[in-house]
Design a binder for these strands. Structure first.
Length: 814
RNA sequence: GGGCCCAUAGUCCAGCGGUUAAGACGUUUCGUUUACACCGAAAAGAUCCCCGGUUCGAUCCCGGGUGGGCCCACCA
């Protein structure tokens, strides 16, 4: 058949995307008996206008797997979710509308959040569609949606029942910008230059020097500490020291944890400068002097500094200490401080009642459960282990925010009891609804006056339940036996959050792994290997690249890096993908033209050697590609298929069989059919092997011819190729290699002599020491003569060129 | 300070205990060949980061450096 001259992805890609949806090619079939392959798709934060090429790369990498598994016959469960609850969304909305939560009502704010997440949802839908993602959109969920809220609340109730939850007012990390408690996993850190300030505390007549980076915390000081073995300070035992500027006395105590060589070996403990302060405060039952408020301002305890921001207060306090001679030295230092990763604000510590999930007592179990998951690449597991081993805090899940899943909790005004709803009533919003419960809306103490929990849950509280959301936990359509899922795909930056939290939840809820396999992608970077960010203006929008080239070309680029490795964005690699698609189109034009009326059954003679040569290589390719995909090494498969198609199938095979295809009267009908079989098998299998990476162009060609032969509605619903061991043929590969060597040498000769490839050569004389050389060449002599455009091929005579295996002589017809 | 990953032509990368170290982009030369100039043919371009060790043999394995990326910790 004749194909159109050109392939236009701008028309073809949307066409097939529409076709796939209409034909429900990607639909999960709940009643199917086929084995399920389920993917715990990362729900992107609904907090961006555009996705950059790095996102597109990461998402493409597991999309390859989805398509591969579908062709392998699995009933693929490939959902999409939008993570549109919680702080990331709130921050996005705050920035976009230039507001902060204290200046807007909860209701108005939530309304804005809902509006904006709708827009981003549409943006994502469009992008994923344009990328050719084989998502079953029926499975879409929103983490702010009813289903996800129900699951998060069931999770809460279950954890409560299992004793994994506690509500305490033990000091926690606090972000003064976002004005909420945060968890250890939300921390980032940044190196800052600061000063060690040597400050004088008075003890009797004695000057005690304390080195501190945070003099603004002086008013929060509750004790001084030294090491019990430190002879310099032993005589201070039991004494009190006066806090400079604020003039109140604090006890001087000793503790093993004090480093004698740090600063002056004498330290102050404040409520609270850091985690260490907290521990000493707790251990020695020290008084509480909280001197900052939620917004990071000094409070009344700081006297005249009240109302000042921490940094301003620090500068003023330093000045005043200097002026009264109590600051005797300043030393510049660089040190890392913890920040809230999302906004970059240095963290503080406040004492707030909050819910937390106890994880510190289960480190061993959480390490163990991770062993049962297959990690791809394996070394990413180390990052998880490292994180778990170094955990310092339980997982605080309360956020003093608006837009998130509410806690399913009321508190009894009278007895202070905790009131939880029944599972059947979930999801609930205690801020809006009355408590129902088992006792007709009464507390067990008889009271009917309740206070709702006003906080919302950490966004990870929901997203850590994506397997359960996909399983519709507690819902009418709950998929029993759905867990563990088959695959968790994600990038490496959220191992400590998403992977960790999901494993934790799954262990606590089900004592099981959440998924059998986890594949971890690297990051797409800018062309210079730098992380992409809007502030650095090196942000390359995925949609732009797709518009300029095609989704297939973009995916081709995304498939060019090993799983887990970072990849600089190189536009030329996208262009290479585009060229590959064109080449595939052109090779198909030739191939399909010659497959008209072709039936494999017509052939009742052995295949020609060059056909066997190509088919043998093809079988090996199929094997390798399959093994690679099974190990989530799509890049290896892509590279090998690319190489085979271009350099074996096009550069040699198609050139070799052209003569047989065009001239059956001269070369014989059977020999033409042998070539047809090769072309059919070669092209079909290349299409299939490439289909997961370049779904559109392969579909276009498949539909033009093969769909009718194979009776499948899509190449993506077709069977993945299986290697035929019988076609693996060492002898033919050897003879073919010999032939390729001859062809290549003659091409060199032409090139060296500035000859056109079509100029006919009179004679080539081959001379070789190889055993059976003549016999072997005889098997392919007609193909050789045709492809080399040479009249006579002989085996003796004078030589003018050399290769390792033979010598040839060439004469030219003019 | 600890950990993980990486180091191969100008660039991006593949690979492997013995290879003429693969491919792509770029460069140079040639070629309007009936699938394709988004092409074909050919050429040039690599101390395979450095130093040791194991081995008959190392780019590949081991140890130690150096450089880069990432993660974690330090934060009185």
């Amino acid at each position: 058949m004749e194909l159109p001259q050109n392939y236009d992805p701008k028309i073809a890609e949307p066409k097939w995307q529409k076709y796939w949806q209409e034909q429900k090619v990607f639909q999960f079939k709940p009643k199917s008996k086929a084995q399920i392959y389920s993917i715990d798709t990362p729900p992107p934060y609904a907090s961006a206008d555009h996705l950059h090429v790095g996102h597109g790369m990461h998402y493409s990498q597991f999309e390859f797997i989805a398509r591969y598994k579908r062709m392998r016959g699995f009933n693929v469960f490939f959902p999409m979710g939008y993570d549109d609850n919680g702080l990331p969304t709130e921050r996005y909305v705050e920035k976009k509308h230039n507001l902060d939560k204290s200046k807007i009502s909860r209701k108005e704010f939530i309304k804005l959040c809902i509006e904006d997440t709708k827009i981003t949802g549409q943006t994502y839908h469009d992008l994923f569609t344009r990328l050719g993602f084989s998502i079953d959109w029926n499975l879409l969920y929103h983490t702010i949606g009813d289903k996800a809220r129900r699951v998060a609340q069931i999770s809460f109730l279950d954890l409560y029942k299992k004793g994994r939850l506690e509500r305490t007012d033990y000091p926690t990390m606090w972000c003064t910008t976002c004005q909420t408690t945060i968890a250890q996993a939300d921390l980032g850190n940044v190196d800052i230059t600061s000063h060690f300030n040597d400050v004088v505390f008075k003890c009797g007549g004695q000057d005690l020097i304390i080195s501190t980076t945070r003099p603004e915390m002086l008013s929060a000081c509750v004790a001084l500490f030294y090491h019990p073995d430190d002879a310099r300070y032993a005589q201070l035992k039991g004494k009190f020291a006066a806090v400079p500027l604020f003039n109140y006395e604090v006890p001087i105590l000793s503790d093993e944890s004090v480093a004698q060589d740090k600063g002056t070996g004498l330290m102050m403990v404040c409520t609270f400068g850091d985690k260490d302060d907290m521990e000493k405060w707790h251990k020695y039952m020290l008084p509480l002097r909280i001197t900052i408020d939620e917004a990071g301002r000094m409070n009344q305890l700081s006297g005249k500094y009240a109302g000042k921001k921490l940094k301003a207060a620090r500068a003023e306090i330093i000045e005043e200490l200097k002026s009264v001679g109590l600051l005797i030295r300043q030393q510049q230092i660089t040190h890392a401080v913890n920040t809230h990763e999302r906004c970059g604000t240095e963290i503080e510590f406040l004492k707030k009642p909050q819910w937390q999930i106890k994880v510190l007592d289960q480190k061993e179990e959480l390490l163990e459960i991770a062993q049962k998951v297959n990690w791809y690449p394996e070394h990413m597991k180390v990052r998880y282990e490292h994180w778990v081993k170094n955990l310092q805090w339980n997982w605080g899940i309360s956020r003093q925010r608006y837009y998130g899943v509410p806690f399913p909790v009321w508190y009894c005004k009278k007895c202070r009891g905790i009131l939880l709803p029944e599972e059947k009533d979930l999801p609930v919003d205690p801020r809006e609804e009355k408590f129902k419960g088992k006792l007709n809306g009464k507390c067990s103490c008889g009271s009917t006056e309740f206070i709702p929990e006003m906080d919302v849950m950490d966004t990870w509280m929901t997203s850590s339940c994506t397997p359960e959301i996909n399983a519709d936990w507690g819902g009418k359509k709950e998929r029993k036996d759905f867990l563990p899922m088959s695959l968790r795909p994600q990038a490496h930056d959220i191992i400590r959050t998403w992977a960790f939290y999901t494993l934790t939840k799954s262990y606590f809820h089900h004592h099981n792994i959440p998924w059998r396999n986890i594949m971890i992608s690297g990051h797409g970077q800018d062309p210079h290997g730098q992380k992409m960010s809007k502030s650095k203006s090196n942000f390359i929008v995925a949609q732009d690249v797709i518009d300029k080239y095609s989704a297939d070309a973009f995916r081709f680029w995304a498939a060019s890096v090993k799983l887990g490795d970072d990849l600089p964005f190189q536009e030329k690699d996208v262009l290479t993908g585009q060229k590959f698609a064109t080449k595939l189109w052109n090779a198909s034009k030739l191939s399909l033209k010659h497959l008209e009326g072709y039936h494999p059954k017509n052939l009742n003679k052995p295949l020609e050697v060059f056909d066997k040569w190509m088919l043998s290589k093809l079988q090996k390719l199929i094997k390798l590609s399959t093994e690679s995909f099974d190990q989530y090494e799509y890049s290896k498969s892509k590279a090998e298929v690319e190489n085979f198609f271009w350099h074996v199938f096009c550069d040699y095979y198609l050139e070799i069989v052209k003569d047989r295809l065009y001239n059956p009267e001269k070369r014989g009908v059977k020999n033409r059919q042998s070539a047809q079989l090769g072309v059919y098998q070669g092209l079909l299998n290349v299409l299939k092997l490439m289909a997961p990476i370049m779904p559109h162009i392969t579909e276009e060609i498949y539909q033009l011819y093969f769909a009718g032969k194979e009776k499948k509605k899509s190449v993506h619903a077709a069977d993945w190729p299986e290697a035929n061991e019988k076609l693996i043929d060492g002898f033919s590969e050897g003879v073919g290699a010999l032939g390729v060597d001859v062809i290549s040498t003659v091409r060199k000769f032409r090139s060296a002599n500035q000859m056109s490839m079509k100029d006919e050569l009179q004679e080539i004389v081959l001379v070789s020491e190889l055993p059976d050389f003549q016999k072997k060449i005889a098997l392919i002599i007609d193909d050789l003569k045709a492809v080399m455009k040479v009249k006579e091929l002989k085996f003796e005579g004078e030589t003018t060129l050399e290769s390792e295996t033979f010598k040839i002589q060439v004469g030219i017809i003019k």
